[in-house]
Amino acid sequence: MFEQQFLVYKEVAETRNFTLAAKRLHMSQSSISLQIQNLENQYGARFFDRTNKGVSLTKAGEIFYDKVREVLNILNNAQQEVSELVEDARSVINLGATLTIGEYILPNILPYLYKERPDLDIKANIANTESIEQGVLERKLHIGLIEGPVPKQKELIAETFLQDELVVVVPYFHPWASRNSVTLAELTEERLVTREEGSGTRKVMEIALEERGLDPSKLNITMELGSTQAIKQVVAAGLGITMISALTLQRKCDHSLFRTLKIQDSPVYRNLSIITLAHSSQTKDERYFINLLHDRELLLSLINEDYCAMEMQCSDEEDRRER
């Protein structure tokens, strides 16, 4: 009972909003208010100052918040350690990944894991950075894999496992196809196909432009798509050019469909990061998975591996193009 109250208290303290806390915990606002009131009555202290703009922690509330976090972390660690002692239990990792990682890295890692660790189940959720971050904070995800800027949350630990380059991609018949590089300023002259606003790839591109004194609003964005694969198909059809991750162009057929151009001004890189909950111990299986991501030589060999199904699909696309 008290664990539920502590979870409610922690959510209200971090969101500073009863309505938002209720939404995140899938509870009614009246139930949230009642549990906070019961806690204040139980400890004989007012933990929140309530105003029309929201709530703020009192001095007593700040002290109690720190203790609540400690208790919840202890309980979570105890649960994980006890779970590891259960014999013959199949190991499960609830994993969250953003789109580029989920589409182009995980599919090559999972067959390797299935072969090396058949006892390990990976339950993957592909979503945007904000959803992955929230999933880790709410302990629904054990590990999050994100691209681009890392969240500024003291509850989270972020560590880079790979660096990814953004490149300009044009169809093989484009006038730029014979070039090796372009400037960012030249992008304003072309029809641009991009990811939707809020995506990690889009954000990194906009930051790169701003850092070089260019206004992202000057780009001639003619199409926004929620999938890198969809963007590649549109570009291959000659409906525009794009700026996407070099990791998404590793398959053999990509080399015949597209030409990849580097940024002349200076290369645009972004970090691919692992996010986990701070003050929370990891199981041996979670550590195994994280160590795999940090094995750069192995990771790159898996990412660059082409599977037969991919090659067959690419051959079909090439045949259709030649016809």
Rank of each mutant, 00 (worst) to 15 (best):
F2M: 06
A13L: 14
T15M: 14
N17L: 12
F18V: 11
A21Q: 11
H26R: 15
S31M: 13
I36F: 11
E40R: 03
E40C: 03
Y43E: 12
G44D: 07
N52A: 15
L57T: 12
I63F: 13
Y65S: 10
R69C: 13
E70I: 08
E70Y: 05
V71S: 08
N76V: 02
E81L: 08
V82F: 07
E84T: 06
T100Y: 01
I101T: 10
Y114N: 05
K115Q: 09
I126A: 01
E130N: 10
S131M: 07
E133K: 14
Q134S: 11
L137A: 02
E138V: 01
K140R: 13
L141C: 08
G144Q: 07
K152H: 14
L156M: 07
I157A: 08
F161G: 10
F161W: 13
E165T: 13
L166A: 06
V169N: 07
V169F: 01
V170S: 09
F173C: 03
F173Q: 12
L184E: 04
L184I: 02
E186D: 06
T188W: 00
R191P: 01
G198Y: 11
S199Q: 09
G200E: 12
V204Q: 11
K218Q: 13
L219H: 08
I221F: 10
L225F: 01
Q229S: 12
V234M: 10
V235A: 03
A236V: 02
I241H: 09
A246T: 08
Q250P: 01
Q250S: 09
K252C: 02
D254P: 00
D254W: 00
H255K: 15
H255Q: 15
S256D: 11
I274P: 08
I275A: 05
A278G: 02
T283V: 02
L293A: 05
R296H: 10
R296A: 02
L298C: 04
N304K: 14
C314P: 00
C314G: 11
E322R: 15
